[in-house]
Design a protein around this nucleic acid. Sequence first.
RNA 1: CGGGGUGUGGCGCAGCCCGGUUAGCGUGCCUGCUUUGGGAGCAGGAGGUCGCGGGUUCGAAUCCCGCCACCCCGACCA
Length: 494
Amino acid sequence: MAEKITPRDRDYNQWYQDVVRAAKLAETSPVRGSMVLPPNGYELWENMQRGLDGMFKATGHRNAYFPLFIPKGFLAREAEHVEGFAKECAVVTHYRLKEEDGDLVVDPEAELEEPLVVRPTSETIIWDTYARWIQSWRDLPLKLNQWANVVRWEMRTRLFLRTAEFLWQEGHTAHATEEEAVEETRTMLDVYARFAEEWMAMPVIRGVKTASERFPGAVDTYCIEALMQDGKALQAGTSHFLGQNFARAFECTFQNENNEPEYVWATSWGVSTRLIGALIMTHGDDQGVILPPKLAPVQVAIVPITRSGGDNEEVLDAAEEMRESLARAGYRVVLDDRDQYRPGWKFAQYEVEGVPVRLAVGPRDVKNGTAEMARRDTGEKASVSAREIVPAVREALHDVQQALYDRAYAFRRDHTRVAESYDAFKAQIEEGGFVLMHWDGTAETEARVKDETKATIRCVPFPDQFPGIDTEAAGTDPVSGRPSERLVVYARAY
RNA sequence: CGGGGUGUGGCGCAGCCCGGUUAGCGUGCCUGCUUUGGGAGCAGGAGGUCGCGGGUUCGAAUCCCGCCACCCCGACCA
């Protein structure tokens, strides 16, 4: 029988948990806040990695790896950084266990002289290293990225959206000038936005964080923000201009062309497995998840309509032939010839798992030289010629990718409004979505709105993020009555 | 980390208040037969330290204490 999925309009949160489980994307583990990623979830991450990694390489970055453990002292070097992360660090204090009365206990004699922190992010250990690597302006820019896991001891966790341990990438770059570092920060934000839109089919808003939402230790934090189906915003990626803060903390200087010492300028940027949560909540429906073709671990599932004990040879041969031509054309395709499940069960299962295109091949199809092709996003079915299977699938995958983006874009457009008064704002926030409102630029007003409505400023948007809305026009902050230079994006957020 | 809830074969649950035979049910799993173009039907069968540890009791899934994990609300955060 079907694993039941709670309808979205009944309990969105429960729906999320149900589909994550039913689509086998992730499970909880015996360790608080740590998840197990079964193949369905991990392969999705691998495909994201592939897409992003290609874009990093294309923008001049190389991959490297830095240690999981960070000496506690490193973290303390940058004042804001330590303040931001100190409260959520896992700390290693011992290096040995021993048996005592049949129990395994931490050996008190094996205490580390300096405790090690499991990286919550790698700025400190990387800047300690960069300080040794960088001597001259000729060593710059240094543009590295690492794929890694990090640990932040979160009090409240949710699969993908906030886990104690998560997978991510973190880019760390060093530059000779401020301009170049800022440009790098913006370039990488743009890479993230393009990845979100072109690969994930998820429209995003580009902008800059307010001081209170900034990364600890950054001068500026740029972000992409997406809108989930329940009207809550999700920060999907961040790119930080770090100024010379870490260079100063780790004494990272270079000699410029005039033989003078200068601190280097830094950036860092990252996206994580949280993107999988974003994907689920952008495209999923009451039947399960819907994966964009460019990222789906399985793009096409072929279900042969067979009878157990019957003569299925022709059907299976036809299905295998299709599988081969699609695989040869470069598609990720599976032929599901398992005989312990009936076709209807397989149809339902691939829908739960979000496979974008399904083909069914039965005796009638063999006779007619056809296959039944179904799109996951619309449920639409069509009979296609077996001879034309590759172009038909190519077109269907392309259409699904585009349709997912269009649908998500329309949703966001329809859930973005401008608040002319604070009362209107409160009502709009209650209904969900992005709400644009004037802001006087003060932390006091920002805090008051958060306190009274639970909405935060998701970002100060770049120009032209909202077609038809001029966010750059000056006005009045309806909350404080003070003048405002522009509209900012408010929302309740994950 | 504060408040609330939950934890019982793989999964979903009942039983707990009011302690007392071999701990039930659905689904999944195994075997057989019948079915087979949208999550099959019938029959037989396997599978449980009742989250973990301690306590009360003649006797604990059930009562008490502690701990762990998960979910919800709050504070904090990618």
